Amino acid sequence: NLYFQGLKYMVPGARVTRGLDWKWRDQDGSPQGEGTVTGELHNGWIDVTWDAGGSNSYRMGAEGKFDLKLAP
């Protein structure tokens, strides 16, 4: 699974964008943008601060869902 392989790169400072299971509307800005991981992966959740200004926790394994992917 590509998403599980990418988890080791989901570290503080990593750049991310919305992924396969995104369901959080425009939390990442409008139009959709990139963000920066600000915390360690914990119980399948990870913290992100978006360039647009907001921050929140997103699923990276929790509930079998992956809200994020590494930015290109």
Rank of each mutant, 00 (worst) to 15 (best):
Glu40Lys: 12
Asn1Tyr: 08
Leu20Gln: 14
Ser30Lys: 12
Met60Gln: 02
Gly6Thr: 15
Asn1Ala: 09
Arg25Asn: 14
Lys69Tyr: 14
Tyr58Thr: 02
Val16Asp: 01
Gly33Arg: 08
Leu2Glu: 15
Gly44Gln: 02
Phe66Gly: 00
Phe4Ala: 13
Tyr3Ile: 14
Tyr58Cys: 05
Leu70Arg: 06
Gly33Ala: 09
Gly54Pro: 06
Leu7Trp: 10
Ala71Lys: 09
Val11His: 09
Phe4Pro: 15
Lys69His: 10
Ala14Glu: 06
Leu68Tyr: 00
Pro72Glu: 12
Gly54Met: 11
Tyr3Leu: 14
Ser55His: 11
Trp50Ile: 00
Ser57His: 11
Leu70Gly: 04
His42Lys: 13
Val48Asn: 00
Asp21Arg: 04
Ile46Ser: 00
Gly64Met: 09
Val11Ser: 08
Tyr3Cys: 15
Gln27Glu: 13
Gln32Val: 09
Met60Thr: 01
Arg59Pro: 03
Gln5Thr: 13
Asn56Phe: 15
Ala14His: 04
Gln32Thr: 11
Thr17Arg: 13
Val37Ser: 01
Ala71Asn: 06
Phe4Arg: 10
Gly61Pro: 01
Glu34Met: 14
Leu20Cys: 15
Trp50Lys: 00
Gly44Glu: 01
His42Asn: 13
Asn1Phe: 08
Trp22Asp: 05
Met10His: 03
Gly61Thr: 02
Gly29Ile: 06
Met60Arg: 00
Leu41Gln: 06
Asp26Cys: 12
Lys23His: 08
Glu34Asn: 10
Asn56Thr: 04
Leu20Asn: 13
Val11Cys: 15
Gly64Trp: 07
Thr38Asp: 07
Lys69Gln: 14
Pro12Arg: 10
Ala62Tyr: 13
Arg15Leu: 02
Gly61Arg: 03
Ser30Val: 14
Arg18Thr: 05
Leu20Lys: 13
Pro31Asp: 09
Asn56Cys: 14
Gly13Phe: 05
Asp47Val: 13
Gly19Thr: 06
Leu70Trp: 09
Gly54Trp: 09
Glu40Gln: 13
Gly64Arg: 05
Ala52Ile: 07
Gly33Tyr: 05
Trp24Gly: 08
Gly53Met: 02
Leu68Pro: 01
Pro12Met: 12
Pro12Val: 12
Met10Lys: 03
Thr17Asp: 01
Gly29Trp: 05
Thr49Phe: 08
Ala52Glu: 09
Trp45Tyr: 07
Pro12Ser: 09
Thr36Asp: 01
Thr38Met: 11
Glu40Phe: 14
Asp51Trp: 00
Thr49Arg: 11
Asn1Thr: 09
Gly61Glu: 01
Lys69Cys: 15
Trp24Cys: 07
Trp24Gln: 05
Thr36Pro: 02
Gly39Thr: 12
Met60Pro: 01
Gln27Arg: 04
Ser57Pro: 05
Lys8Glu: 15
Glu40Tyr: 13
Pro72Trp: 12
Gln32Arg: 11
Tyr9Leu: 09
Trp22Pro: 04
Leu20Asp: 13
Asp67Ile: 01
Leu41Phe: 09
Ala71Asp: 05
Gly33Trp: 06
Asn1Pro: 13
Gly39Pro: 01
Gly29Asp: 08
Leu2Ile: 15
Asn1Gln: 11
Gly6Arg: 09
Tyr58Met: 04
Val37Arg: 00
Val11Gln: 09
Thr49Val: 12
Val37Met: 02
Trp45Cys: 04
Trp45Pro: 00
Phe66Cys: 11
Lys65Gly: 05
Pro72His: 14
Glu34Arg: 13
Glu34Asp: 08
Asn56Trp: 12
Thr38Ala: 08
Gly53Pro: 00
Trp22Met: 05
Gly53Trp: 00
Trp22Thr: 04
Leu2Thr: 14
Ala52Thr: 11
Ser30Glu: 11
Thr36Asn: 03
Gln32Ala: 14
Ala62Gly: 06
Leu2Met: 14
Arg59Ser: 02
Arg15Met: 02
Ala52Gly: 09
Gly44Thr: 00
Pro12Tyr: 10
Gly35Val: 02
Trp45Gln: 01
Leu20Tyr: 12
Arg18Ala: 06
Thr38Cys: 14
Leu70Cys: 14
Lys8Phe: 10
Val11Met: 09
Gln5Phe: 10
Glu34Ala: 13
Lys65Glu: 04
Arg18Ser: 04
Ala71Val: 14
Leu41His: 07
Lys69Asn: 12
Leu41Cys: 11
Arg25Thr: 12
Val48Ile: 06
His42Cys: 15
His42Thr: 13
Val11Gly: 08
Val48Lys: 00
Leu20Thr: 13
Gln27Ile: 05
Arg25Gln: 14
Pro12Gly: 07
Ser57Ala: 11
Tyr9Ser: 09
Arg18Trp: 06
Asp26Phe: 07
Thr38Gln: 08
Arg25Asp: 14
Asn1Leu: 11
Gly54Gln: 11
Trp22Gly: 04
Asp51Tyr: 02
Asp67Phe: 03
Glu63Asp: 12
Gly44Lys: 01
Leu2Pro: 15
Trp45Lys: 02
Tyr58Lys: 02
Val11Glu: 08
Tyr58Arg: 01
Asp67Cys: 03
Val11Leu: 10
Phe4Glu: 15
Gln32Glu: 10
Phe66Gln: 04
Ala62Ser: 07
Leu70Met: 10
Gly13Trp: 04
Phe66His: 04
Tyr58Val: 05
Leu7Phe: 08
Gln5Gly: 09
Arg15Pro: 01
Trp24His: 06
Ser30Ala: 11
